[in-house]
Amino acid sequence: MTRAVFITTEGERIALDCGSEPSMMRVAVANGVPGIDADCGGSMVCGTCHVHVPEDWLAKLPPKSSMEAEILDYVPEPHPRARLSCQIPVDDATDGIELTIPRSQR
Rank of each mutant, 00 (worst) to 15 (best):
M1R: 08
T2L: 07
T2M: 09
R3P: 04
R3V: 01
R3K: 15
R3I: 05
A4E: 07
A4C: 15
F6S: 05
F6Y: 01
I7P: 08
I7H: 01
E10H: 00
G11M: 04
E12T: 13
E12P: 04
R13E: 14
R13W: 04
R13L: 04
I14A: 05
I14L: 14
A15E: 15
D17R: 10
C18L: 02
G19V: 05
G19F: 07
G19M: 03
G19H: 10
S20P: 02
E21N: 15
E21I: 00
S23A: 13
R26G: 05
R26F: 03
V27R: 04
V27Q: 04
V27N: 07
V27I: 08
A28T: 02
V33A: 01
V33Q: 02
V33C: 02
P34S: 02
G35E: 02
G35D: 10
I36Y: 01
D39I: 13
D39F: 12
C40K: 04
G41M: 03
G41S: 10
G42N: 09
G42E: 05
S43R: 11
S43G: 11
V45K: 02
C46S: 07
G47Q: 01
T48I: 03
T48G: 04
T48S: 09
C49E: 02
C49K: 05
C49V: 05
C49I: 07
H50I: 10
H50K: 10
V51W: 04
H52K: 12
H52I: 15
H52M: 13
P54Q: 12
E55S: 12
E55N: 12
D56G: 14
W57S: 05
L58K: 01
A59M: 09
A59C: 09
K60D: 14
L61P: 10
L61Q: 09
P62V: 12
P62S: 15
S65C: 09
S66G: 11
S66Y: 08
S66F: 13
E68H: 06
E68D: 10
E68L: 03
E68Y: 07
E70N: 13
I71A: 01
I71Q: 08
I71R: 02
I71C: 07
I71Y: 06
I71F: 01
L72M: 07
Y74V: 14
Y74D: 15
V75D: 01
P76D: 13
P76F: 10
P76M: 12
P76E: 14
E77L: 13
H79S: 11
H79E: 11
P80D: 06
P80Y: 00
R81M: 12
R81T: 15
A82N: 11
R83A: 00
R83T: 06
R83H: 08
C86G: 13
Q87Y: 04
Q87M: 10
I88F: 03
P89E: 04
V90I: 10
V90M: 06
V90P: 04
D91Q: 10
D91W: 11
D92T: 10
T94V: 02
T94G: 06
T94P: 02
D95N: 12
G96E: 03
G96M: 02
I97L: 00
I97M: 11
E98Y: 05
T100L: 13
T100D: 10
T100K: 08
T100Y: 14
P102W: 04
R103K: 11
S104W: 07
S104C: 10
S104V: 09
S104P: 00
R106K: 13
